[in-house]
Amino acid sequence: MTDDKALRLALADRLTASGHLHTAPWRTAVEEVPRHEFLSGGFFEPVPGSAPTAWRPVMPDDPRWLARCYDDDSLVTQIADTIAPRDIRGEILRAPTSSRTLPSLVVRMLEELQVEDGHRVLEIGSGYSTGLLCHRLGGDCVTSVEVDADVAGAARVALGNCGYCPQVITGDGLAGDPHGAPYDRLIATCGVIDLPYAWVEQTRPGGTILATLSGWLYASELARLTVHEDGTARGQLLGGQVSFMLARPQLPPPLGTLPDLNAGHERPATLAPDVLNDWNTRFVAQFAAPHAQRVTLTWEGRETHVLLDVEEGSWAALARDGDTWTVRQDGPARLWDAVEDEVTRWRTDGAPPLEAFEVAVTPEGQTATWTKV
């Protein structure tokens, strides 16, 4: 038995024992698809103790590389949109922009997709998951859309080395693939703030969309929606605090220059900003302010938390006065008023878990409701 075959079998055992891998077809796919082919260009690992996080390359000639390819870990493969592991000697402090998702999340999502033989699948984002889909359904049934030309090219090579020939399209995944529609299933391996209606249009009635919904406060959850004959899609959040890098067209804009925090209108805050430290509360807050970004700083000697909606020009600054907080707001929207209203309404309903939320996508946009506890 080759070293990588033993590693694949061991990975399948771990994923089964952890409760992520349930069915025989997906277990067989994990056992047969070589994840290391999708990491043949190396990957980046974080430098221990670095702050902000620094990254250093791990290349295939590193004795740790092969075993690390089969760890249940997300492995960064690109930094700052263009920088690959082969481009770096030493360390880099820029932000990751592409990675190979941890296998436990990949197989969980594939199980949640509930595919059947003969289903045609549109995948947003290309990589190891594409190989697993090809093994399960056959390459003719898989279309993958990847926004990054380098990532798409590497995926085509890796898939070819594995013996798979799906259609891999270089393009904006948010636009999907109208020419190949309708699809039975659509799965996205990136986060989205607003689920594109194009995905609903390109999924047949009765079909399934599986995607991670997020916001610029970076709390996200996996949602599974069913497309209906009336052109809408509805479904539940699945829980588990699933997190992906956002689709590039939906990344937040640069913050730019901070506004004058002495402007605007001030009042006592009903909720302190530390409510946003809780994942579920932050996810709820994003419904009220999906395009707000959060900055923490010291302003005039006081701890201050700022929410900024750069696109709209609105902001809210919360400052501590002893044991209490005040909020000062300006712009077209009162961001903290909206957050307090949404979070208070959710808490009044018993703070239901995110699995109690239903998401609906229509031509008019995306909404979410929850069931009271």
Score class of each variant (00 low, 15 high):
residue 318 L to A: 02
residue 224 R to Q: 14
residue 76 V to A: 15
residue 4 D to G: 04
residue 223 A to H: 11
residue 25 P to F: 05
residue 92 I to F: 05
residue 234 R to I: 04
residue 368 A to F: 09
residue 170 T to I: 14
residue 59 M to Y: 04
residue 23 T to N: 07
residue 163 G to D: 01
residue 71 D to M: 12
residue 171 G to I: 12
residue 205 P to E: 04
residue 174 L to G: 07
residue 123 E to Y: 03
residue 309 D to A: 01
residue 166 P to Q: 02
residue 260 D to S: 10
residue 239 G to K: 08
residue 51 A to S: 15
residue 65 W to R: 08
residue 272 A to I: 12
residue 207 G to P: 02
residue 204 R to Y: 08
residue 278 D to Q: 11
residue 72 D to A: 11
residue 361 V to I: 15
residue 200 V to D: 09
residue 165 C to P: 00
residue 332 P to W: 04
residue 335 L to W: 10
residue 144 S to H: 02
residue 46 P to V: 11
residue 70 Y to T: 15
residue 223 A to F: 14
residue 97 T to Q: 12
residue 126 S to V: 01
residue 93 L to M: 08
residue 224 R to L: 09
residue 208 T to E: 08
residue 365 G to Y: 10
residue 45 E to F: 09
residue 317 A to H: 06
residue 99 S to R: 03
residue 296 T to Q: 14
residue 161 N to A: 11
residue 285 A to C: 12
residue 95 A to Y: 14
residue 193 I to W: 01
residue 148 D to G: 06
residue 352 P to W: 00
residue 147 V to H: 11
residue 123 E to F: 05
residue 328 R to C: 08
residue 293 Q to C: 11
residue 344 T to D: 05
residue 117 D to T: 03
residue 190 C to H: 09
residue 60 P to Y: 15
residue 69 C to L: 02
residue 339 V to A: 08
residue 204 R to N: 07
residue 127 G to Q: 01
residue 358 E to Y: 07
residue 109 M to K: 04
residue 121 V to W: 03
residue 373 V to G: 11
residue 158 A to V: 04
residue 100 R to G: 15
residue 318 L to I: 15
residue 196 P to E: 05
residue 332 P to F: 05
residue 275 V to H: 00
residue 236 Q to V: 03
residue 48 P to E: 13
residue 289 A to M: 13
residue 62 D to L: 13
residue 242 V to D: 09
residue 349 D to F: 06
residue 265 H to M: 04
residue 361 V to N: 01
residue 203 T to A: 06
residue 303 E to F: 04
residue 301 G to V: 07
